[in-house]
Amino acid sequence: MSRLMIPKTYKLYLNGAFVRSESGRSYKVSDDNGIFVANVAMASRKDAREAVVAARVAFAGWSGASAYNRGQVLYRIAELMEGRREQFVEEVYRAEGGGKEAAASQVEGAIDTWVWYAGWADKYAQVAGNANPVSGPYFNLSVPEPTGVVATIAGRRPCLLSLVSLIAPALVSGNTVVAFPSQAHPLPALSLSEVLATSDVPKGVVNILSGSPAEIAPWLASHADVNALDLTGAEDLNWIELQMSAAETLKRIIPPETAAWAAWRSLDRILAFTEIKTIWHTKSVI
């Protein structure tokens, strides 16, 4: 007699915990053939606000951690994803169809993306910052720092790779993230949150909300405590409206059009959510 399998309950990943939406809402997720797979939590506006609070609280610790430490934590995510490679391949394949090979290639791409960005954590500041030869007795240095709380809308496909490609570069410099994965294919992202929860990523640094970005993104765009908006995967939304709303608080924005610098792995993605701080210090005249 074959064993009856145990289906997983997919929840939101909010402030390091797996929770149902406070609204009690859920929605059906189907596989590529339209067959029911799971009910997942449907995040509400209040869930999004709580995620922003969690991300803000986590910001000081994550941005204050050493760059070496952040790099190690990101590498740890790759290690744990590798360990659950088969599960991710299966989930991506069920979600997107298109053959196991394509799914495997996407998962490997996602894992390697973490490794690539992990290595940047203690290097990007050397590339993006510099000493400035000002006229006068001053020590003058420009360094990049994380922007703050980043709200991210990931694309539909590739559902896992697109999410990883958006949140990894934001994390490199010390930003914290509130992310909406693909609404139609959220399961790989929600499994990723299990990896994040066990990878020494401090709670609140990444928050993953399944649900309708069309419904919730406007609240994030206008939220005064969100510093940046990554709209790379928001092609299907009214992203111009979101951008206009974000203008009220002068958020940093990556619009959905795939400009040259918005390639999946790029230093520019790291720098898009950093601020250059320039420090002048007097030198005594000897």
Binding site: S105, G109, P158, A260, A262, A263, W264, R265, S266
Partner: peptide
């Protein structure tokens, strides 16, 4: 530092 990937759209 940009890696070309099969999934990248032409830009």
């Amino acid at each position: 530092g940009t890696v070309k990937m099969s999934s990248v759209k032409p830009v």
